[in-house]
């Protein structure tokens, strides 16, 4: 081989590695929406609101469903990185497990904006918009204490144990109720934020404990499932059901006296704001708060009227 050919080979080798350094999305304007699951209407609203706002801002948008599966989520990140999206609007499956995916995207030059669920990292994502679950459940906890007159037996049905929201809500709730020795938790079990699982869990718990006054569920889907179990057992006049999300059926349930209270989140606001922040980033802005809590509102029979048409 001549010297000139040898130099060409070296240039080819260096050229191949330089291809990986090309900035993502230089010739495209695409935003990926990666959602933990589309099997829950709440997350469908989150995904579609984010995608719609991104489209309004002029981006081509794709929704990726992780099906609550971290391997599926990693696959979506692989595809988004390979296809060189401009930004990711992300609803994680796992607060710890999802960090690596976000870091991979960051290393590939793709900014990530977390919606609703957080990852355990201060700097992997550009920013994280999160409902203030803890404070919402502090408010709910105080309401439960007053409704039970500081005394009674209650059940707690938790969401997905790998989701920080599960523990932020539980911790907020317990930061209040645990201060009242007259209130006793007779059972605590996860139903994975799933309505049917919650119904089964509540049925089983009611068989073991006949003297339950309330059940606190980490989301409204589980609250509706728990309510079904309470209804089937003929105990709706005895057991109060509390939820979290402010889902349409639960809010209606509060108005109808089926659900004692819930806490309303604002997924449309979070999703739209995430898309707008992504757009600002793409336009050159780099000044973002690491975390932005979004206030939630306690919905009780006293104020539910103002929320029935939302």
């Amino acid at each position: 081989m001549s010297l000139s050919r040898f130099i060409v080979v070296l240039f080819l080798i260096s050229g191949l590695s330089a291809c990986n350094n090309r900035k993502p999305g230089q010739d495209t304007h695409k935003i990926a929406v990666i959602i933990s699951t589309l099997n829950n209407p709440w997350f469908v609203v989150l995904a579609e609101s984010a995608a719609d706002r991104a489209k309004e801002l002029g981006y081509e948008t794709t929704i990726f469903d992780s099906q609550n599966n971290s391997a599926k989520e990693a696959e979506h990140f692989d595809n988004v990185i390979a296809m060189k999206y401009n930004a990711i609007l992300f609803n994680p499956t796992d607060a710890d497990g999802s960090v690596l995916n976000v870091k991979r995207a960051k290393d590939a030059g793709i900014p990530t904006f977390c919606m609703d669920r957080e990852i355990n990292s201060k700097d992997a994502a550009v920013t994280q918009l999160l409902s203030d679950n803890f404070t919402g459940c502090v408010k709910l906890g105080q309401y439960v204490v007053r409704q039970l007159n500081k005394s009674g037996n209650y059940v707690e049905i938790l969401g997905l144990v790998g989701d920080n929201n599960t523990w932020n809500r539980s911790n907020g709730f317990h930061s209040v109720v645990d201060e009242f020795p007259g209130l006793k938790m007779v059972a605590q079990q996860s139903a994975d934020f799933d309505r049917n699982k919650a119904m089964d869990v509540m049925e089983t718990i009611m068989q073991a404990h006949s003297d339950i006054d309330a059940v606190f569920c980490g989301n409204d889907a589980m609250a509706m499932g728990a309510y079904q179990a309470v209804l089937a057992a003929g105990k709706t006049d005895r057991i109060m059901v509390f939820g979290f999300d402010g889902a349409r059926d639960a809010v209606n349930g509060v108005a109808q006296g089926k659900i004692a209270a819930t806490v309303m989140q604002f997924p449309v606001l979070m999703a739209r704001t995430s898309a707008e922040l992504a757009d600002q980033y793409i336009q050159g802005n780099r000044d973002f708060a690491g975390k932005t809590p979004v206030e939630v509102i306690l919905i009780t029979p006293e104020n539910v009227g103002a929320f029935l048409d939302e």
Partner: peptide, 29 residues
């Protein structure tokens, strides 16, 4: 005595230094 009045009213607790909301909320507690 619950919630975030003291944490957020004090003006000296910066959310950005916490890895997650659990840590931040534990400060309120």
């Amino acid at each position: 005595i619950f919630g975030n009045a003291v944490r957020d009213g004090s003006g000296v607790v910066d959310i950005s230094v916490f890895v997650n909301m659990t840590q931040f909320n534990d400060v309120s507690i």
